[in-house]
Amino acid sequence: MPTEAEKQENVNWRSASSESPEVTLRDRLSEYFEERIRKPALVAWSDGRTRIGLLIMSVYIAMAFVAVFDLYRAPSTNQAPRLETAFQSLDYPLGTTMSGVDLLSLIIHSTPDVLLMIIAGGLWATVIAVIIGTLAGYKGGMVDRVLMSFSDVMMAIPGLPLVIILAVTFNPKNPIVLGILINVNYWAGLGRSLRSQVLTIREDNYVEASRTMGMSTPRILLKDVIPNLMPYVTVNFVFAARYVVFASIGLFFLGVLPFSTQNWGVTLNYAYSGGALFTWQAAHWLIFPMIAIMGISLSLILLGQGMDRVFNPRVRTRLAGESESTAEEGDSRTTEVL
């Protein structure tokens, strides 16, 4: 998102100023960096939740690197003694499975696909939602009605069963396709709430001003509207990503999704069907994949919460319509008390 926005700044400068381009550009970029990246980043970092979230996430990113660059052995059957419990040997610190696979290598080598999947799913959900939400909210009229009816229908289809049927039908193997498939209709609800935010933003003075100045709709959307949605979108990206984790692993665990990709859910499924339920001996086989799942979703939730705090110091009012009078009086009130 920052690169995209930086590009916009670029475009603005080119069309708007002709006198001292270098200085303006540098000033604008540095101001942009200060206002939109450095300050929010500092605030975010000051929040303990963001810090812990990032820390946990970096562990997963490190695991993905290890897997991609093959710094740790790949999982294969009979590479180790069968069903060794955890913390028994340095060779297989997390123990092994029934078929003699090192559990640690299973978990590490699942990471890249999981990360790809959640990024794909999160991007899909948020990008589609932003496109649909801003178009519907800004254009209004027929466009709005058609897009919102479409969203309503999409929203009414229960996500998980739909995904299951789609998965059986299309049998996707690519983690990116999988991520998109899982969030195939996740964008609908988000698109709707973005639309109502756009409806309030478009009435704001500066948007009004841009319109009066004869700026084109795409430019107003890019310059005035979307940057204001970004905080909300970022937070929801994280939540969409978390949904991908929950749903995908659940579906892998059920055995709905093809086992061609490595995934903690697949490991869980093998443990479950391999009889790990019946004996304490195999508990580690169930528990470590679970920890991997919970870790990444915990990190996503913490990041979401931390960012939410950065972007909305006040809890966002759910009901957009009632904010007309509160703005003025809220102002004087706070200064009064301070």
């Binding site: 009130r333 200064t335 009064e336």
Partner: peptide, 8 residues
């Protein structure tokens, strides 16, 4: 003025 303590 606002911030002069009048609400207090």
């Amino acid at each position: 003025e606002s911030g002069s303590g009048k609400s207090m």
